[in-house]
Design a protein around this nucleic acid. Structure first.
Length: 961
RNA sequence: GCCUCGGUGGCGGAAUUGGUAGACGCGCUGGAUUCAAAAUCCAGUGGUAGCAAUACCGUGUGGGUUCGAUUCCCACCCGAGGUACCA
């Protein structure tokens, strides 16, 4: 008995030794890659280059969940594939390490964000490493590293020293502008500049004081200071983003928020609106993403028209009101004007009779956030100013109203209202009893406005009568220009981007103030490092956290940061207190990876000329109108400077879908406070409460004791079971810590290994689609890897053994159809289907009992991008002593797939009924005859004569009748 | 409202230019192995009827084009994401 037991143990031991030991294998090869620097990319190579980039992560304190690496796995497969295909691959990774959560944590705990960030990065790095990514870590960048943000500050300085020349359609140095102003003022300069830029002559320019000249130049610079309306929260002492405000109060703490004007840095991205639009046609990005950017930029063609107010007894003056309209052809239908309540003329033109009503309306509007105004679309509100404007053609007086459907921030904040041609104007006119003249031929406007451009024929419009939309628009614009009351104009919705943040944990601006005007710190003194502060909150006087810094003044003589006490406004000046937003550092990291340690330049010319641009960029669509728009703008600016060789930095982009969590719920009955199992809730009033998914097994049973320990408030609650079990409810939601549905990749790697996790994430479904996570399914890919392992371990007791015999024909067929399909799939980014293909391949080879080296070697190579650890191990066991990573991808050969016969599906009226095998070269007529003669055909037809027989050689036979 | 993406078994999903719907995997059912379990292996698994051969139905709904439609066209329904009352 003892002997028997012993034998059993030995047997088990042997099995253990020979079986697929992913933990050891993965550890071994991760160490090997790190040691050998297998994935280090060189900036010169005889091979063609290929640049695969992931959107770098923000290292949050929570670490990675299984949703995060999805895109990284895909890009890693592609990068590894490209190496097999003979490319010099750049596949870097880094950290977007400035950001709010670290700062929030600092406020709460006093811990320096740099420390917590460092800790979080360590966790991220460990988690990324355990997944076996082929990153070139020697090129890592961190946006919060002064060596990196030195160059973020440097780009900012270049933007400050540039203006946008609309004629040349590119950015040019400010130093070009000054001689121009000196020679002939600014009348001949066609630049992207502030709306309120005054006209001046050369003489006036020369007469300006230095400060006035600086103020003028600021209106031209690509980054400039401007008063911007922000959401100010006095209680938090900070500015909030729109989505940090819920129902008019701050999301955090529920404090009131007011609209406030603040001086902020802005980026003149609007100068690039057209180029950002045009560039979309040159890049291979997903259409929905391009659509999002197109809509965001919001180009519309039309005309600007100047109306003049009619002077009244009260207001003797006549003010011009500029409007933008996309339908200048309908100008004769304008029966009133509407101004945004915030419009600056409102106060000037309102008559005393209307003042009370207008003031009340303006005040009511100011209280409502832009979101509130948008959400109540159906309610028409407004007020009459008592003033009138003169129609530019008929000279008729038309009433001027204000209404909050006109937005101050779009166009000029004023519209000419044509109720017959615009539904909003129509509703407004109806509501307030304003005239609705019809200027369309043969159109009934008694119920709604008519906005169909194609079917427009203009009537009652003087010289426009009988014209189509197109002709009338052309004609009216030339008439407007003739009488000097308007011109053709293209308007963009895109607004300049606010670039200041009232935060600590961001890049400091390399800016100090002399006589309140900004000056740049000279490039050679960069980086300007973040100062130490005692606390990370705004100061008591409402200044940003950098206002707490004691040593934060610029000594312009010594070119160094000195104590604030020394500020004398003569040689020592205050430094900027704002920091840059999150998108600053991410707008150039893709270029910095090309030459990350360069201390002399942002990158060398050689480096960027070699790598040029990202060939494949993978990341989430949530960055569509943020990072992905801003970074395109920065790149175009770099291109204008002559630093970047291409205008678009990412040739192809793929949005990976989100992995959704499978949340678990317990149900608390409202009346009894009992906690009910999911099957018991029908007809009862219950509150669903999230349960942590780690407390639930694959059969949806809850670990009740674990739940009680996790949620002490349920310690004494009564849990009502069904059939002795407590079953949770399930729902698919976004994977998030707050929903307690996150699945940690560490646990998966422990239990199944990184190769299994990589395969499974790909196997879940198409890369670009959102899909729910279900850990239970991973056993499928895991047993695939075990089957694969067995294929190479057919020796005694499962030892490694392959044969050098010629492979069988069927082996070759299986291999080559797999090579073909996998290669096509990778090129199409259809990774899920290639995992199935591998499974089919291994199933077939196992059934064929294939042990042939000639088959098993190429199989290891084509699998290696997906499951690199096991592939390396098998490669080594096959007798190779260097990494599989750069071995050539096997060539697919058609000759192994050639068939001589085809099993034709025989269908009747389109439905497949049975199959018949015929030679592939059998002529159509003979197939038809053979099919018709077959007894099963006769059985199907039951005596009927077929009307027609369709034979598609090599495909199908269809009998009709 | 508008824009975008999607809707196929119990679940994730597959189906090249219109040509065998449901590949592959999970789950489930039955069996082998085992003292037992895990693991592994074998068989079955869209629905309905039938012992079976087989028949009928079946890709959100309703039409259409076609010898043939998950695939193309028209109208609609539902879900997800985005967004701008944009003149």
């Amino acid at each position: 008995m003892i002997l028997f037991y012993f034998a059993l143990q030995v047997n088990n031991l042997r099995r253990t030794i020979m079986s697929y030991h992913f933990k050891e294998i993965e550890k071994k090869w991760q160490a090997y890659w790190a040691e050998q620097q297998t994935f280090k990319a060189t900036n010169e190579s005889a091979k063609p280059k290929y640049y695969v980039l992931d959107m770098f992560p923000y290292p949050s304190g929570a670490g990675l969940h299984v949703g995060h690496p999805l895109g990284y796995i895909a890009s890693d497969i592609y990068a590894r594939y490209k190496r097999h295909k003979g490319f010099n691959v750049l596949h870097p990774q880094g950290y977007d390490s400035f950001g709010l959560p670290a700062e929030q944590y600092a406020i709460q705990t006093g811990q320096h964000p740099a420390l917590t960030t460092e800790e979080n990065i360590k966790t991220y790095r460990r988690q990324l490493d355990q997944l076996g990514f082929s990153f070139d870590w020697s090129r890592e960048v961190r946006t919060s590293d002064p060596k990196y943000y030195k160059w973020t500050q440097w780009v900012f300085i270049q933007l400050f020293h540039s203006w946008y020349d609309n004629e040349a359609d590119k950015a040019r140095p400010i130093s070009d502008l000054i001689p121009e102003f000196q020679a002939s003022g600014n009348s001949s300069v066609n630049a992207a500049c502030d709306e309120d830029t005054p006209h001046f002559t050369a003489e006036q320019w020369k007469a300006f004081k230095d400060k006035e000249q600086q103020q003028i130049l600021l209106k031209y610079r690509l980054t400039y200071l401007a008063d911007t309306e922000v959401n100010w929260c006095p209680a938090l002492g900070t500015v909030l983003a729109n989505d940090e405000i819920v129902n008019g109060v701050s999301e955090r703490g529920g404090h009131p928020v007011v609209r406030k004007k603040m001086t902020q840095w802005s980026m003149r991205i609007t100068a690039y609106a057209q180029r950002l639009l045009d560039g979309l046609d040159t890049i291979d990005w997903p259409q929905p993403l391009k659509d999002a950017q197109t809509n965001w930029i919001g180009r519309s063609e039309g005309a600007s028209v100047t109306f003049k107010t009619v002077p009244s007894a009260e207001t003797k003056e006549s003010y011009p009101i500029d409007v933008f309209t996309t339908r200048p052809d309908t100008i004769f239908g304008a029966s009133f004007m509407t101004l945004a309540p915030e419009h600056e003329l409102v106060a000037k033109i309102t008559t005393s009779e209307q003042k009370a009503e207008v003031d009340a309306y303006v005040e009511a509007t100011a209280k409502r956030s832009e979101r509130d105004r948008l959400s109540e679309v159906k309610v028409v509100t407004g007020a009459f100013t008592g003033a009138y404007a003169e129609h530019p053609f008929t000279a008729e007086p038309i009433p001027i109203w204000i209404g909050d459907y006109v937005l101050a921030g779009y166009g000029t904040g004023a519209v000419m209202s044509v109720p017959c041609g615009d539904q909003r104007d129509y509703d407004f006119a109806r509501n307030f009893g304003i005239d609705i003249p019809n200027i369309f031929e043969g159109v009934d406007i008694s119920e709604e406005a008519f906005a169909n451009k194609e079917r427009t024929v203009i009537a009652n419009s003087d010289f426009l009568n009988g014209l189509s939309y197109k002709d009338a628009t052309k004609k009216i614009i030339s008439e407007l220009e003739k009488i000097g009351k308007g011109e053709g104009k293209i308007n963009y919705r895109l607004r300049d981007a606010v670039f200041s943040r009232q935060r600590y944990w961001g890049e400091p601006f390399p800016v100090y103030y002399v006589d309140e005007m900004p000056r740049m710190i000279a490039e050679e003194h960069l980086p300007l490092k973040l100062p130490e502060v005692a606390k990370y909150l705004p100061t008591e006087t409402g200044e940003p956290p950098l206002g707490n810094a004691k040593v934060w003044a610029w000594d312009s003589k010594q070119s160094t940061v000195v104590s604030n006490e020394l500020i004398d406004h003569k040689t020592i000046f205050p430094l900027e207190l704002n920091t840059m937003p999150g998108w600053a550092g991410s707008s150039q990291y893709f270029n910095r990876y090309m030459d990350p340690h360069n201390e002399e330049a942002i990158f060398s010319k050689e480096a960027i000329d070699y790598w040029k641009q990202v060939d494949l960029y993978i990341g989430g669509i949530e960055h569509a109108t943020g990072h992905l728009l801003y970074s395109r703008f920065w790149q175009k600016f770099m291109f204008d400077l002559g630093l970047a060789p291409v205008e678009e930095y990412a040739k192809k982009l793929i949005n990976q879908g989100m992995i959704l969590g499978n949340s678990a719920f317990v149900y608390r009955e409202v009346e009894t406070n009992q906690v009910l199992s999911a099957g018991l809730i029908s007809g009862k009033k219950v509150d669903p409460i999230h349960a942590d998914v780690s407390l639930v097994n694959t059969s949806n049973e809850l670990n009740v004791e674990g739940f009680k320990a996790w949620r002490p408030e349920f310690k004494d609650a009564e849990f009502v079971l069904e059939n002795g079990k407590f079953i949770v409810g399930r729902d698919v939601e976004k994977m998030s810590k707050s929903k307690y549905n996150v699945v940690n990749p560490d646990a998966i790697c422990q239990q199944y290994g990184a190769d299994s996790l990589r395969l499974y994430e790909m196997f879940l479904g198409p890369l670009e689609q959102s899909k729910p996570w279900n850990t239970a399914g991973i056993t499928g890919v895991h047993s695939f890897l075990k089957k694969l392992w067995k294929l190479y371990h057919t020796g005694p007791d499962g030892t490694f053994e392959v044969s050098d015999d010629e492979p069988a024909k069927e082996n070759l067929k299986t291999l080559h159809k797999t090579i073909k399909k996998v290669e096509e799939d990778i090129e199409d980014f259809s990774f899920n289907t290639s995992v199935s293909t591998f499974m089919i391949c291994v199933n077939e080879l196992s059934a064929q009992k294939c042990r042939s080296r000639a088959i098993l070697e190429p199989l290891a190579i084509i699998l290696s991008p997906y499951a690199p650890h096991v592939a390396e191990e098998l490669w080594e066991r096959l007798g190779h002593n260097s990494s599989i990573a750069s071995v050539a991808f096997p060539e697919f050969d058609d000759k192994f797939l050639v068939e001589s016969t085809k099993e034709y599906p025989i269908s009747f009226n389109g439905k497949m009924r049975f199959k018949l095998e015929f030679p592939l070269d059998m002529p159509r007529e003979e197939i038809e005859a053979a099919v018709l003669a077959h007894e099963r055909t006769q059985q199907q037809l039951q005596g009927r004569t077929p009307k027609k027989v369709i034979v598609v050689p090599g495909k199908i036979v269809n009998v009709v009748g």
